[in-house]
Every structure is written in C-alpha cells, then in structure tokens.
Design a protein around this nucleic acid. Structure first.
Lengths: 210, 210
DNA sequence: GATTCGATATACAGGTTGTATAGTGAATAT
DNA sequence: ATATTCACTATACAACCTGTATATCGAATC
C-alpha cells in the first residue's frame, strides 16, 4: 500500500534503484535485439521480458506500456548516438561543410541502428507513439534549421521549404529506401550529399521559383 | 462438402459472383474508410466486416487473411489511380518534361489516397506484406527507369543511383514527410520538382562525383 | 427437384495488451 | 532488532486480435 498522507517514511535509495536501473537496461537491450533481429511485429512485452529474464509485469513497472517501452528504446538508441560528434560538426564554420558532416553522421547513425525500423513502423501505426517520436525528431529539424539560417536563407516560406526538404532527406525512411539491399551508409551519404548541398546553396537558381 | 473428384458439376455463375463482387467491393470500401479515418492499427477484420454489414468469416472467404485484405485494398486504390494520365505523361517526348508530369501525378495520387498510410505502416511491420507491396511499387520504379534511360544516363551505377533517388523522392514516405500538416499536393510537387529534375539532368555537374 | 456455393452461426486455439490482487525478499530506516 | 519500503514475482482476469473448423441457411444454378 502507498497511502500518500499516512505514515510515509522518506527513502533515499541506493543499491535498490541501481539494481532497478540495471534490469531496465537489460530490458532495453533485449527489446533492441528483438527489434533488430525480428522486426517490430515480434516485439511483445512477454518476449522482451523473457529475453531479459524478468516477468512481463516488470516491463509495466518500468515503462508503463508498450509505447513506453518503444519510446524508451528509441531514447536509448538516441543517447547512444554520438551527440559529441554532432556538436563538433555543427561547429564547422562553413554551413555547407557543416551540413555535409551532419548528413554523414545521420547516415552512420541510421546505418548502425537498423533496429529503429521496427520502432518507426510501430509509430506509423499508432498515432500516440507517432507523436512521441515526432517530437524527438524535432531536434534534428532544429539542427538543420540552424544551418539554413547560418547560410542566410530568408525567413519565411523559403526557409521552411529548405528545412523540410533537408529534414526529409535526412530521415530514416529516406535512408532505408536508398539503402535498399545494396548500399552501405557511405554510399547513401554520397547519393544524398549533392541534393542536400544544392538545397542549402540553391538560392542562386530561381528557375523553379515561380 | 466439396469432394474434388466426385460428382462435381461445372458451374458458370452469373448473378452469384456478381453479388460476391459487390460485397467484396463493399468490404474494400469499408477497409479504406477505416484506414483513412482511424489508421492502420484500427483495421481489424471484425470492424471491417461490421462496417460492410457482413460477417468476419466473409472477409476470410474473400481475401484469405488480413494481409490479403490489405493487399486488395492497395490494389483497389492503385487501379482507381489514373493509369491513363500516367501513360499520357510518359508519352511526352522530352524526358525531363515527362518526369515533371509523372512527379505531379504521383503527388496527386498520394494526396488523394492518404488511407495508404495505414497500409504502408502495416507493411513496415510485416515482412510478408512488405514484400507484396514492394513488388507493386516496382512498377513505379520501372517507369522512372524508362525516363532515366531515355535521358541517356549511362547504364551501371549512375543509372541505378538516379533511379533509386527518383524512386525515393516520389515515394509515399517522402510525400507524407514533406506534406507535414501544411502543404497540399501541388506545394509538395513544387518542392520536389527541382530536385528530381536535377537528378535526371544532373550529369553536367560532376562536382560530387569523386 | 437436386446441387452448388456465398454467406452465416457458433465454437475453439492461441496470441496480444492492460489491469488487479496478493505475496516475497532484500534494502532501508528507526 | 524490528518495522517499513519497494522492486519484483505469481496468478488471475477482461477484452481484444487472427486464424481455423464445423454445421447450416438460402438463393442461384443446373
């Protein structure tokens, strides 16, 4: 029982939630393995719990719901992704050079974590999870916005167009489509770079501007 | 009973399978409405059958499985899409002009049938359904291949690169991402056209060719 | 009038998410 | 030492889902 106002002793845990964090990490690992090897459909809470050596109810204790588990798995992958190198790339003075490095980093990232496919698929099926993941993707959009602004593209529709195009081209869906079953991350990056660069530098070509 | 080799009279139906085709069409309509209004997760066989006023088993009679229903729904949308205008666009002499028309047609198509989102999401979750849908999408890839060849891009890796890029840029995923919640089909097309045109005509710029 | 066949009614097996309740045992407090 | 907290377990249940099996109805077809 946990009656809020009655005889509650304040607890400062230590070993306790250390162990809890460890089982949480084990669950996330198990979930990502299943996602990578068997796709999003196969990720049941039961299978995840069994793979981590705990009960299904423990998953609910840790993540609240299936969507909670998927969000946490995405976050785990994102944090594992190299934020340091991203910041370093953004520090490149020339915006076009910075964009090239950023695109490369995202290609490497998508390439290294193909288990994300299952999460994105689940997000496409479920509106709630979709919104949660979209919010996390906004950080990428913000990053690209900074580069667009630094390049000096006028605010307004032109800016939104450039950002949305870059956002789409650096998405997981685009990467997966271009990857097919032949290319590696570097090849996809080579394919993507000229297009992205043109979007950022392309103000000199008003042919299609209408 | 239906003992194959025993006392089977050959039947040539008429009104019978006319009625069957009508319930089949009603089922497909119901499925597409559900997909459009509630997403791929909500499409259960029970809900589809109820919306069409039949039993769940009738869905199995008609489509064999859930994947069968989704494939049939996709085919129904595809056939409903204007093949005539596509052929007409392909008949445009100049490859770049033809591509512009083709891109526009696909933008209109994706825009008009946003219920496809649920089908593509389900395909991303299920490998079998994914393969079935990918095969159907190859017709679009073939179309783009014809335009690339007509433009005279050398066979080999350059051709494959151009086709894959155009295929990705004209995909439903790209369209949806660019559409966001602001743009209409024409706006997305305006965004896409310069990129697609550059891919087709872009042999003159070997800057990134390495 | 007999046969075929699309559709129905009903039931079952096995899977899923999510919730509820009671209990265990180690970490933590007094 | 004793009491309390809390992550985890065990078990059960409700409500969905897909897929399959069997018996039946009734209109279209022979």
């Amino acid at each position: 029982m946990n009656i809020p106002g009655k005889s509650s002793r304040p607890y400062a845990t230590e070993k306790r939630d250390a162990k809890a964090a460890e089982t949480r990490a084990r669950l996330l690992d198990a979930a990502l393995v299943i996602l990578r090897e068997s796709g999003g459909q196969a990720l049941s809470l039961d299978a995840t719990a069994r793979a981590a050596g705990v009960t299904r109810l423990t998953v609910y204790n840790q993540f609240g719901s299936r969507n909670g588990l998927l969000e946490a798995a995405f976050d785990a992958v994102a944090e594992q992704g190299n934020l340091a190198s991203l910041a370093e790339a953004m520090a490149t003075p020339d915006p076009r050079a910075a964009l090239a490095r950023v695109v490369g980093i995202f290609c490497d990232f998508w390439m290294a974590h193909d288990g994300l496919g299952g999460i994105f698929a689940a997000a496409a099926m479920d509106a709630e999870l979709g919104a949660a993941l979209a919010a996390r993707n906004e950080r990428r959009r913000a990053l690209l916005g900074v580069l667009v602004d630094r390049q000096g593209i006028a605010v307004g529709r032109a800016r939104a167009d450039a950002v949305d195009l870059l956002f789409t081209l650096t998405s997981f869906a685009t990467f997966t489509s271009l990857r097919g079953d032949q290319r590696d991350g570097a090849a996809v990056c080579t394919l993507l770079l000229p297009l992205c660069d043109r979007i950022l530098a392309g103000q000199a070509d008003p042919a299609q501007g209408r």
